[in-house]
Design a protein around this nucleic acid. Sequence first.
RNA 1: GCGGGCGUGGCGAAACCGGUAGACGCAGACGACUUAAAAUCGUCUUCCCCUGGAGUGCGGGUUCGAGUCCCGCCGCCCGCACCA
Length: 849
Amino acid sequence: MEKRFNPLAADGRWQQAWDEAQAFRADDHSPKPKCYVLEMFPYPSGRIHMGHVRNYTMGDVLARYKRMTGHEVLHPMGWDAFGMPAENAAMEKKVHPGDWTRANIAAMKAQLKRLGFALDWSRELATCEPDYYGHEQALFLKMLEAGLVYRKESEVNWDPVDMTVLANEQVIDGRGWRSGALVERRKLAQWFLKITDFAEDLLDGLDALPDWPEKVKLMQANWIGRSRGLRFGFKLDQAAAGHDGIDVYSTRPDTIFGASFVAIAADHPLALALAEQDSALAAFAEECRRTGTAAEEIETAEKKGYDTGLNAVHPFDPEWKLPVFVANFVLMGYGTGAVMGVPAHDQRDLDFARKYMLPVPRVVAAEGEADKPIHDEAYTGPGRLVNSHFLDGMSVDEAKAAVIAKAEDGGWGQGTTVFRLRDWGVSRQRYWGTPIPVIHCADCGIVPVPADQLPVVLPEDVSFDVPGNPLDRHPTWRDVSCPTCGAAAKRETDTLDTFADSSWYFVRFASQPEDKPFDKAIAEQWLPVGQYIGGIEHAILHLLYARFWTRALKHLGMLDFAEPFGGLFTQGMVTHETYSASHYDQPEGSEPAKLYWVAPEDVEYIDGKPVERVSGRPITVGRVEKMSKSKKNTVDPTAIIDQYGADAARWFMLSDSPPERDLEWSEAGIEGAWRFVQRVWRLATDREPAAGEDKDLDRKLHKTIAGIAEDIEALSFNKAVAKLYELANALEKAQPSASRTQAIDAMLLLVAPMIPHLAEEAWSARGHEGLIALADWPKVDPALLVDDEVTIAIQVNGKLRDTLTAPKGADKASLEAMALESEKIIAFLEGKAPKKVIVVPDRLVNLVA
RNA sequence: GCGGGCGUGGCGAAACCGGUAGACGCAGACGACUUAAAAUCGUCUUCCCCUGGAGUGCGGGUUCGAGUCCCGCCGCCCGCACCA
């Protein structure tokens, strides 16, 4: 027998054995309980990175464990294969996006295979293939028919570098999420999905997701952003530019008697109308639009306004006139684009009022503070209404209800719920995406592509030598006849946002018939996904869209459930030290000039000091950061597998750091993992004459079995790893016995989900028949989970002074007696009797002196 | 600014309901085996003024007993951001 486990020989052999046995194929018709384990599918960028390895290893351990504990497991893999990078590659390297993407998929699939993941490759899918996106087009048309899709001329976020529209969710600090370019505003006819129809349900549904991280639920709740308030109309004392009133929305209708002005957004219809005759206003509005949306700009931007000269009439007092301003802090995109200004109780309104010398009447006050003037801080705390006529003396909540009731009775306002969430703009002016399956006819308008003409296949003969969408320049694809009237018509050349592709792929994994998107009955056998694992960066976009899409499918009667992912886990990043060197050789201690990043494999240590291998220049070791190409601190998983094998890489991904936290990759860490793999091999192959019982070892084993099961179910892989180290230590110390032989077999079963290749090799070397991947998880004997003896801590005044060994379950009196016999304790008590004795059975005795 | 999370040895971290803080790993020290090295094995490793004392970011509190609960600070990280 080999002295060492040789992964280079063994890994491939077992991967082939699993393939041949179809060990991980999910059976739709199995009578076993179903379990769907899913990791977020990758974008085929070309190579897998350590983040993928970590993500998929976690899912794999769970999937393998579930299989061993009697579940029929669905653990699929596919490719989120549409998107910008393929087009960028096409422009830079003159390759077709499809060729580039498919080559990347092949390369990454080969890499994933080498890690030995227990995946059902028979269900592999790529979103860029017509047999996937064709069904997506069918779903889009069903949503269109059901009124969940609409088209509207709208101002969009235009990314001038990527030459495409971005959803609000894809604009970060006023910049495109991918290109980083400053986003411009443009008017375009766009397709929208009515996610706002489900705003309330998407928010309330979060409460029914106990196995989601609170953090993610909170982020989604904030994003959906529900607020309750009053929408009401101010009349203008005289009509202007065709408007006789202004609708505003307020979450604080209780403060209505504290209003001192009305402010409207620069893009408000009234402001636009007025600006046509007022060049000064037009200039001010233009200035407002220019103000960036970046964080610092908003923070430092002064509240500015333009007095329109108009007056609004207070709804409770026809004599009370409020000046109407156009203000830079009012956003057209939220509420009605107009607000009532209550300076005493809103900080922005207060800043504005101070600048334009408007009154600041207090209408809410804490006990005894009714006369306390407002200075530069608005009062937003609780209290009772003052200076507010019929509201005086009410609490804030009572006053809100009273004002809403009056407004509704008087017919000038309505209590409403407003959401921050906007409809999902899905049109992209790109080639490499799912074609939107509609035809524009001059006579018939928008005509859906008939179902029997789906899929609308992307044409392959396109060129990328000009910026913009090549579909616009493709006459034979674009020009069609209208399916309704037969006249000349044009295809929609926009494609769907790639987030649409990832909004239902988990359903297609569960069921993939040729003639329809999925079979309801089969899909529902697997869904919802039991455990979904991926990065926190998808907390809002992907997860919200997928929740919406699932609700839309339910609305269409295609599914019976609303939440796609029962359990969600967001794993931490893989990080690495960063290394930099200077272009100029300088005396020590001087400022480093012109630094450049150095990759880990180009760093070597000479006399304990890091230097760049090629130049010998000294290296500065920088912060530990997420592995990224820009910082060059990446480690290629394939190189690691070549050197250490898949199991060591997998083991390292699971050790040390809790899975939700960042994991720092290090050479020492992977070396340690390698040593452990070899240790297990030595334990498993070191045959000994086996007889006799070892009760302590039996107990240790059964505690470990129970503990590991618990840890894997909770995804606490680092704790499971620690327990396995303890078991290995115990096995090495133990004398040969039948117990030990059994424990070694059991240990192989316990490590099989984590280091499956070694487990198979050792399992077979020890003469077992069949694949360990398909073996049963060892049974726990509950009798062996309890000890006969326990260690009792003896404290004096809460401080540990001694310990003693007592039989499990010893009564309080005998524990106390034993404690008082301890010589150390006698010394500490200096002969005095304790004032009080606290005994916690099987744990401790605390003597209070 | 708003919301959330986290602070434990040289490092990554354990510690279930308030009950022996530091399991387990990394790094390190010493030793064994070896012609030698690698590999492997063994012992030690929170700190200090070391028969004792201190110690889980800092300061208080509750309790027989606090890493864990409460109050007040400090620091770091993440998300959102003029949302009316």
